[in-house]
Every structure is written in C-alpha cells, then in structure tokens.
C-alpha cells in the first residue's frame, strides 16, 4: 500500500475519539479527590476497594451473571436445534419462522421490556426474576439463530448422510457429527449473546425491583445520584472483563470470525 497521509490522520483522529473518553475514565479511577476530577490529584486504589465493599454492586453483579448465563444457556438449548431445523429442506414457511425467531432484534428493547413487564409481571403476576430471565432469553435467541444458523448453512450435509449410511441414527449423527463441526460458532454465539445480555439496559430497567437489579441497572441508577470515582473504578473493572472476554474469543476462534 502506498502512503495516504490524510487518511491515516483522519482514522487516527477517529480512534482518538473512540478511546480518549475511555482513557479519561480509567485515569479518574485513580484520583484521590472524592468527586471525579481530571486531571487527577494524587494516586489511590481506594475506589476499587470501595467497589468491592459496595454490597449492591456485588449483589447485582452476581445477579447479572446468573441471569445472563441462564438466559444464554436456555437460548442455546432452544436455539441450536431450531437453527438446525431451519436449515433442513421441507420445512414450510421457513423464512417466516426464521424472521419470527430474529424479531426480538427488530423490536426496540424498551418495548420488549415494557410489554414483558406489563403482561407478565403486572397481569400474570409471574415473579420478577422469571420475567427478567425471559426478557434476556428473548434478546439472546437471535444471536444463536443467526450465528449458528449461518455456520450450519455452510456445513456440508453429506457428512451427516454418510453417518446415516454407516448406521447412525439421526439423533446420534446430529450429536456426533453436526455438533462438533459447529462448536466454534456455538461458542461465538454464546459469547456474543452473553456479552449482549450482560450489558443490556432497556429490558433490565423495566424488569427490576427490590433485590432484583442487574449490574448495569444498578450502575445507571447510581450514576444519577452520585458522581464519584467509584463509578470510574467499576467501569475500569468491567472494561477489564471485556478485554478478558475478547482475549478468550481471539484465542479460541479469532475475533474476526465473530464480527
């Protein structure tokens, strides 16, 4: 490639725009002043300690993990076989069903959250936690259908047919032949759905109440009344978590395949 100075400078500026705000957060997590200041004075780890000592952060973190893991697992259990069925011939209304499975991405998150809250929590009196779980399941399912579905479409179905001719039942062939060949896309879809669920605000915001509040919801409510470096410290910890997940994805199947 020949040099393109103007373009490099432009791209550099865009990356600066993307990263300077996050870098500033990171720096403010270490300042000694009890309200956020930039540039910082002094240097301390006390805000990180404060994060771990804050019971509501810890509780909501555990709840977030629980909800996201359960919802994503449920989405996997229901989504993988569905994605498989949708790639087979002879399913009538295939494209309609597929759009229906993907529809939670088209419906705005606040609307999903609002309608679940109104119908399930208010009208049916189903416990809030179940509602939250269902909401997160709904937003996770499309990731599984899309990512696993596209890898199933690229899979050569004759390897499955070979297994049948060798005497394998259809179920056994699915388990022993199909699943291992789509394992990396299963992992990718799981990671994407998990990250998305963990970060979700609009759905969680409606389905929260006493004792039921995900970490982002807790953090958001905290920010509305507090402006202190504890927020920065928690942000840094969450960003570290993101980096670790990205590293895991990169090591197992490469980030390029996920996006």
């Amino acid at each position: 490639m020949r040099k393109q100075r103007g373009l490099s400078i432009f791209a550099g500026a865009v990356f600066a725009f993307l990263f300077i705000p996050l870098i500033i957060i990171t720096i403010t997590a270490f300042g000694e002043n009890p309200t956020i200041q930039f540039p910082i004075t002094g240097f301390t780890f006390q805000w990180f300690t404060a994060v771990f000592e804050n019971q509501s952060f810890m509780d909501s973190f555990l709840l977030s993990l629980e909800v996201s893991l359960l919802a994503t697992l449920l989405a996997l259990i229901i989504g993988i076989p569905a994605a498989y069925a949708l790639t087979r011939q002879g399913v009538k209304g295939k494209s309609w069903i597929k759009s229906f499975f993907l529809s939670p991405t088209i419906i705005p998150g606040v609307v999903v959250g609002y309608s679940l809250f109104q119908f399930i929590v208010i009208r049916l009196q189903i416990p809030l936690f179940t509602g939250l779980l269902l909401g997160h399941f709904l937003i996770s399912l499309p990731y599984i259908i899309r990512v696993v579905g596209s890898s199933l479409e690229q899979l050569d179905f004759s390897i499955e047919e070979v297994a049948w001719t060798l005497g394998s039942t259809k179920f056994k062939a699915f388990i022993s032949i199909v699943l291992p060949n789509i394992s990396s896309s299963i992992f990718a879809s799981f990671m994407l759905a998990f990250i998305n669920s963990f970060n979700n605000i609009p759905v969680s915001q409606f389905l929260s109440g006493p004792g039921i509040s995900t970490l982002p919801t807790t953090l958001m409510n905290y920010i509305e009344y507090n402006y202190n470096p504890v927020v920065s410290a928690l942000s840094v910890l969450l960003m570290l978590g993101t980096i670790i997940l990205m590293f895991l994805i990169e090591k197992t199947l490469g980030l390029a395949k996920v996006v």
Partner: peptide, 15 residues
C-alpha cells in the same frame, strides 16, 4: 468500545 457497557460509554461523556 462496542462490547463495553453503554452505561460506561455514556458516563464517559458526562466526564
């Protein structure tokens, strides 16, 4: 940034 929580990304601009 895309995988970073949107609360954090909005908070960055409060700063």
């Amino acid at each position: 940034p895309m995988l970073t929580n949107s609360v954090i990304r909005s908070f960055a601009w409060i700063n």
